[in-house]
Design a protein around this nucleic acid. Sequence first.
RNA 1: UCCUCAGUAGCUCAGUUGGUUAGAGCAUCUGGCUGUUAACCAGAGGGUCCUAAGUUCGAGUCUUAGCUGAGGAGCCA
Length: 459
Amino acid sequence: MRIKELLSSREYGSEVTVKGWVRTRRGNKNITFVALNDGSIIHNIQVVIDMSRFDEDLIKLITTGSCIAVTGKLTESPGKEQHVEIHADSIKLYGTADPEVYPLQKKGHTLEFLREIAHLRPRTNTFGAVLRIRHAMSFAVHKYFNDHGFFYLHTPIITGSDAEGAGEMFRVTILDPKNPPLLEDGSVNFAEDFFGRETNLTVSGQLEGELGALALSSIYTFGPTFRAENSNTPRHLAEFWMIEPEMAFYEIEDNMNLAEDFLKYLIRYALENCSADLEFLSGMYDKELIDRLNFVVNNQFERITYTRAVDILQQSAEKFEFPVSWGVDLQTEHERYLVERHFKKPVIVTDYPKEIKAFYMKLNDDGKTVRGMDVLFPKIGEIIGGSQREEELEKLEGRIKALKLPEKELGWYLDTRKFGTAPHSGFGLGFERLLLFVTGMANIRDVIPFPRFPKNADF
RNA sequence: UCCUCAGUAGCUCAGUUGGUUAGAGCAUCUGGCUGUUAACCAGAGGGUCCUAAGUUCGAGUCUUAGCUGAGGAGCCA
């Protein structure tokens, strides 16, 4: 049985078998206590070993990190820290963990150290909690969309499109890097590559997502995303997971409503289904975590235009390193001021100048701003970026020409506007950024099992 | 990529104006303890002071370069 079930069981006297990894062992020559964990829940179950019934040499091998199976009687515990315990009748030792070299100790480790042993850190309380929450949030994403009539669309991971403009890309190739086939002008001849063209890992499933939305009405993607940016921050990964819903017949207001409802649903789901893990993380790292999650669930997000945001920033007494004026992109310090100091709640900023946003965003009637929206959260900044898309063929072509994007490569995308175009909207949610907020972790490398970032692809 | 800070035992850290044999807590090992709660008590072992070069009679400590990590910025999700 899993430890999660046993800890809530009151069937005292029943014989049970439990399998897991040892967290601590303590005791004397008469009695030994083992705290056992199988990852089903953050709590351990206590195994009580009567030393007169076991070979001391076997018990000595049951050290922190070893793996055992215990069969015994489930018993009401006289101890204060737990209701139930198992009195061992037999123990099978699956695997030892030499205490001289096993890196995880009973005492706390820094997150930096645990990052260096990412292959073992799932066995810690912190990463057990984070990984269980990560699973719960993945499940909740699918449940939310399924319950709302969205279809899960698998957009390609290898893409020939380099027109998203969402950042540097990782090249996918089978050509010999030392001796690639060359054209007469000396450039690489990608016609000889596997796909017969230059290909990269996806930086966004949005453009393909739009194709799905303009057929199935509402779709979402949830898959790995790759950015080859040399970003060294606690909020960026080279490989991360992104959720991108795309909806036909949604205007920008519908898009905002969905984003707010979706985020609140996910956070509420965590509060209702991950309470033990959240309480652990709250106690260990961030005392205000649960209050902050409840606050976001129970309060309306502030919605302001970019123009109003600039007004607020200009009228504030705050001295910013980067001065604010209409037309410049908002800096991190500006976003943090709006969210953490001025409104003290999540903020959705809309209607940015077209010059600082992507080509596909719908142009407003003023001809100057586009219907983009960024959802800004306390502590982590931009958690969602999205927009209403430009559905008018001529305007979209105009933007592509103005930005000198490769129009030929976007022909398939423009066909959606040529044939049965429709107003539509969507957004991208960085899954790990959501997890940063929900878990209270400070570094994005600690909310993904095996982080990929510049100069590191270990494990 | 830029700025700032850091790197000393398995882990977390202390180490004074440059000065004898580099310390502590935890972990580990040994012994003790009749129900513990990251058990407790006693003892022991454990060091390429990140790397390289330099200054100096003398460098963990000062200088330069590099490597690694963290925080901030940019890019963004």
